[in-house]
Design a protein around this nucleic acid. Structure first.
Lengths: 234, 234
DNA sequence: GTAGATTCAGTATATGGTTATCGATATGAA
DNA sequence: TTCATATCGATAACCATATACTGAATCTAC
């Protein structure tokens, strides 16, 4: 029943598994995590929502609400144990278990992701890259082999890979997604700016830079269009 | 008064200019745009919300609502003119006017963005890159010069650059943001996973891959943790 | 030319997420 | 030991967005 749940682009028709945590809260958790790791490094043992809120520019209530979703239990007056909280968030997000992934599209963006070692801290391990361009097959990028696309399905199946990352151009994205599904991949992190057509049980997460750019450029355009401070419905 | 409005991470304290369009709608517009350009290429002249909805997996009502924000006027029974709609969206998003931008952090991700020619179609023109590593200063990436960071503020001012892109590691992000502000940059597209501290009038847009990854890995973890179909509050 | 179907526009309702309130509990100081 | 204060946890109010509804406009077919 779980399907694409891209926060902003999702069709409301097919409501996915009512998540037990709001998407925005979910997306704030890594921010807390990052902050808490810093705290721990500084040797700080306990922290309260108010402190977190002050440092991260969030209202304490929201912080508390977000953390509650993870199941952490705090103590009045003292807050939460930093170490325990970090662990709770990691467990909640599944960062403790490694997710092995295949990446398809060894272009600029794909290369960037392949070289991003930090992902391993968050349970993401890209084990191989693929490309439909035969020219690219055989080369190595950041110590990962680039294989021809037609090997994907078979390999995914044999290696029990559950996660696929698409960093290919929009035109190829659907074909790639089909291959991934054929290989038994359960979740797709899609950087191509298209809506993928996949069976309902596949989790699709769209990472659309153009969405963000749209939002940003609208604000910027507006800034120069209307006098500061003015705001009225179009 | 407009400030960071990152859809999901924003502090609720400082409510930005009540946008005359909901963020989610704003983020869906590029999707429509992409679709419409395809249609136009196929020679299709008019399109209705129902058709768009069917093709993009959205309910027609939502499509209509989103398009209304752009100010487009449709005709009952026939829908909208494709060409006019494309133009309306582009104008609304400010994609007609070029936004010149500076990018800081010539690492993997920075290189990827520098090489992404498509941005120019959406009004984004990255004119130069910067890096705090002196080793990188002087090299060229995808036909763009990489300059030392300390040149940024002055250049931004003299060239009237309004947009800055941060693709540097989290540790350096704040310093870079400070430089950008000093140079008169109005909006920052921040790919570093930290909350930037900038004056209220600066537009900050956070593009946090870890947020997305969190969301994705939570769903995946959940998939294997709870039997399919089960869904209950934590 | 008229009837019927389709779609747009504007208004109303429902849902989900955020913010505020309240009581309970632990800590630290008197 | 007792009191004041900070903080948690739960519930409730509120707000933004998504969805539904109604009426008017336009096209097509007869």
């Amino acid at each position: 029943m779980v399907i694409d749940m891209n926060l902003s682009i999702e069709s409301p028709l097919k409501r996915p598994d009512a998540p037990s945590i709001p998407q925005p809260s979910l997306r704030r958790l890594p921010q807390y995590h990052h902050y808490l790791v810093d705290l721990e490094a500084k040797g700080i043992g306990r922290v309260s929502c108010s402190t977190i809120g002050r440092d991260l520019n969030l209202v304490p209530i929201q912080v508390r609400k977000d953390l509650q979703y993870t199941g952490i239990i705090g103590k009045p007056k003292t807050g939460y144990s930093v170490t325990e909280l970090i662990l709770t968030i990691e467990t909640f997000l599944g960062w403790n278990n490694v997710n092995e992934a295949f990446l398809v599209g060894a272009g600029n963006l794909g290369t960037a992701l392949l070289g991003h070692e930090r992902f391993s801290k968050f349970g993401l391990q890209i084990v191989a890259a693929f490309d439909s361009d035969p020219q690219k097959a055989g080369i190595w990028i950041h110590n990962k082999a680039v294989l021809p696309l037609d090997k994907l399905a078979d390999l995914a199946q044999r290696m029990s890979i559950h996660l696929g990352i698409i960093t290919a151009p929009a035109e190829n994205a659907q074909t790639i997604a089909d291959e991934m599904v054929k290989g038994g991949i359960q979740a797709i992190w899609n950087f191509a700016p298209v809506k993928l057509n996949v069976p309902a049980h596949i989790i699709v997460h769209n990472e659309d830079l153009y969405s963000s750019l749209a939002s940003l450029s609208w604000k910027l355009a507006r800034r120069f269009r209307v006098p500061i401070q003015e705001r009225e419905a179009v």
